[in-house]
Amino acid sequence: MKLLMAAGIALSLACISAAEAPSNYETYYGGVRVDSDPRLLNHYNRVLAYCDREASLPQRGSPYPYDTWHILALRSCLYRYSFVDRGVHSYPANWFWGHVFEQ
């Protein structure tokens, strides 16, 4: 049982994409896309720069930008600043459930 749980955690961490495109992100309150407003896009870019530096610290993430821990720390920081990734490839379950609910 512990082996299956460890394998599940490893697979879930391996399937996380590093989507940083503003078109994939929206605000937590209201669901406004980031690229729809220039002021919001400017705020997103400033938060992304801050969160990228924070995710590069060994205490939070990893200095390697393509590492899973770096991506998780980056998404966590963006979420704290109320930017939520809503892209199709943000989580593997979104692709499956998105097609189920469309039909």
Rank of each mutant, 00 (worst) to 15 (best):
A6R: 03
L57T: 14
G8R: 01
L3N: 03
D67P: 13
F83Q: 02
Y79S: 11
T68F: 13
L57P: 01
W97M: 06
E102D: 13
A55N: 01
Q103G: 07
H43A: 15
G98H: 01
L41A: 14
G61Q: 11
W95S: 10
Q103V: 12
R80Y: 02
A93C: 08
L41H: 07
R46D: 07
Q59M: 14
Y44T: 08
L13D: 08
T68K: 11
E54M: 11
C51W: 04
S56Q: 01
A7F: 08
P58I: 11
P38R: 03
S62I: 02
H43C: 00
I9P: 11
S23Q: 04
Y79W: 05
Y91H: 07
R60K: 13
L57F: 12
Y50F: 15
Q59E: 14
G61T: 11
H89E: 09
A6M: 13
L40C: 07
C15L: 15
V47W: 03
V84C: 10
C51V: 10
V32P: 08
L41M: 00
N94Q: 09
R60A: 06
F83L: 03
L4R: 03
A10I: 13
E54P: 03
F96I: 03
L72Q: 10
R75D: 15
I9K: 12
Y64H: 11
S12Q: 00
R60T: 08
F96E: 02
A10H: 09
P65A: 07
A19K: 02
H43K: 14
P22V: 14
Q103R: 07
L11R: 02
Y28D: 09
F83H: 03
C77T: 02
L78T: 03
L48R: 01
W97A: 04
Y29P: 05
F101A: 05
D67G: 12
L40A: 04
